[in-house]
């Protein structure tokens, strides 16, 4: 048991030294308004990749709740959240990052999931398997995926 923990710590260390600039979910610093000023990875986001993750059911699945004209080729836009056309004119980048990390800090009790959070859940599962979550539960999206989505959202300047 002890040895396993040591090994796990070793692996975690190795992982961080490879991607030294990735901020772990528990280490993200949020302003009192729910903004996150620092990039989660230090690597600029890729808007095209962001659009894919936004639409993908196994990615962010943002389209389940939000409609957006820029992706009108994709079927089935949801109506649970606001239409995201022009969203870059309403929010600055740090606010968008904060919304994706944990929307509850901007909209208390939001139905929108926190995409970069790994603790504090009730009966978390291992993705959609119905099995309990593993001890090293990963956030729903990786830091770089969030940066990519932000880059995509920043292109949404038109209504």
């Amino acid at each position: 048991m002890k040895r396993q923990m040591l090994m796990a710590a070793g692996i975690a260390l190795a992982a961080t030294s490879v991607q030294a600039d990735v901020i772990a979910p528990d280490d993200v610093v949020m302003s009192e308004y729910g903004e996150v000023f620092e990039s989660l990875t230090g690597v600029p986001g890729d808007a095209a990749r962001g659009a894919e993750i936004f639409a993908s059911r196994s990615g962010g699945n943002c389209l389940a709740c939000h409609a957006v004209s820029a992706l009108s080729d994709e079927p089935w836009h949801g109506e649970v959240g606001p239409v995201l056309d022009g969203v870059a004119t309403r929010w600055e980048e740090p606010a968008l990052r904060g919304l994706l990390v944990n929307a509850d800090m901007t909209f208390p009790d939001s139905i929108m999931p926190a995409f970069y959070k790994v603790s504090g859940f009730t009966r978390p599962g291992d993705a959609f398997t119905t099995r309990p979550a593993p001890a090293d539960l990963q956030p729903i999206l990786e830091g770089q995926q969030i940066e990519d989505i932000i880059a995509f959202l920043m292109t949404l300047t038109d209504y």
Binding site: F121, T122, R123, P124, G125, A127, F128, T129, T130, R131, P132, A133, I140
Partner: peptide, 9 residues
């Protein structure tokens, strides 16, 4: 429905 929350039903 609970599975779809990424939960353990």
């Amino acid at each position: 429905c609970i599975r779809d929350t990424r939960g353990e039903p």
